[in-house]
């Protein structure tokens, strides 16, 4: 199933998509039932260990899925090989930086 790089990406895109279905519905439901989601409500919600952990897992999978999707877009539309490599490199840097920022925010909430 995961012998080549292309196969691996294809498989992980589907796997992350599948995992994101319940996680997304959980997040939408959580937000909808915590509205208007002021500071105290948001803080209380994310301070609960289960929500915090699920949110962290959600972010990891979502960032992976986003990376795979945007990578595919770049591969399809950026034809110049040098520009393509630069774009794919920048994409990884941005995705990792944003993931690090959001996980850092999430952890500092629990302190």
């Amino acid at each position: 199933m995961t012998h080549s790089k292309a196969h691996r990406g294809w498989f992980l895109q589907r796997l992350t998509a599948l995992l994101l279905i319940p996680l997304t519905l959980w997040l939408v439901w959580s937000v909808a039932t915590t509205l208007p989601l002021d500071y105290q409500a948001a803080h209380n919600w994310l301070s609960q260990p289960l929500n915090s952990i699920l949110f962290g897992v959600f972010l990891l999978i979502l960032f992976h899925h986003t990376w795979l999707g945007l990578k595919e877009v770049i591969e399809d539309y950026v034809h110049n090989p040098v520009l393509k490599s630069i774009a794919l490199f920048l994409l990884i840097i941005i995705v990792l930086a944003l993931l690090a920022l959001s996980l850092h925010s999430l952890f500092s909430l629990r302190l």
């Binding site: 994310l46 960032f63 945007l70 944003l98 920022l101 959001s102 850092h104 925010s105 999430l106």
Partner: peptide, 22 residues
């Protein structure tokens, strides 16, 4: 594909929301 790109931009809002919450 377009909604996927739009949602990637939405992810920026989510990251920022988490950042200001912290």
């Amino acid at each position: 594909r377009l909604t996927g790109i739009l949602l990637s931009l939405g992810l920026l809002l989510l990251v920022y929301w988490l950042y200001v919450l912290a």
